[in-house]
Computed example of a mutant assay.
Amino acid sequence: MANIGIVIPAAGQGKRMRAGCNKQFLVLMGQPILAHTIRVFEESNFVSEIVIVGAEGDISVIKELVYHQGFQKVAAVCKGGVLRQDSVRAGVRALSPAIQRIVVHDGARPLLTLQAFNQFLEETQEYPAAIMGVSIKDTVKRVNLAGNVLETLPREDLRSVQTPQVFDRGILEVAHYQAVSAGYYGTDDASLLEWMGYPVQMVEGMQENIKVTTPEDLWLAERILAMRES
Score class of each variant (00 low, 15 high):
6 I>L: 09
7 V>E: 00
17 M>F: 08
20 G>E: 05
21 C>F: 02
25 F>I: 05
36 H>W: 14
40 V>A: 02
41 F>E: 03
45 N>C: 08
45 N>P: 05
45 N>G: 15
48 S>N: 12
48 S>I: 02
49 E>P: 01
51 V>W: 00
51 V>I: 07
61 V>I: 03
61 V>P: 00
65 L>E: 01
68 H>L: 11
68 H>C: 10
70 G>E: 09
71 F>R: 03
73 K>M: 03
73 K>Q: 05
77 V>S: 01
77 V>W: 00
80 G>R: 04
83 L>D: 08
87 S>N: 04
97 P>T: 10
98 A>E: 15
104 V>W: 00
104 V>D: 01
107 G>F: 02
110 P>E: 06
111 L>H: 07
118 N>Q: 14
123 E>G: 02
125 Q>H: 15
126 E>Y: 12
127 Y>W: 13
133 G>A: 15
136 I>W: 06
136 I>P: 00
137 K>Y: 06
139 T>G: 05
143 V>H: 14
156 E>W: 09
160 S>M: 11
162 Q>V: 10
166 V>P: 00
171 I>L: 15
185 Y>Q: 12
199 P>R: 08
205 G>A: 06
205 G>C: 05
215 P>Q: 09
216 E>D: 14
218 L>T: 07
220 L>I: 12
220 L>Q: 14
222 E>D: 13
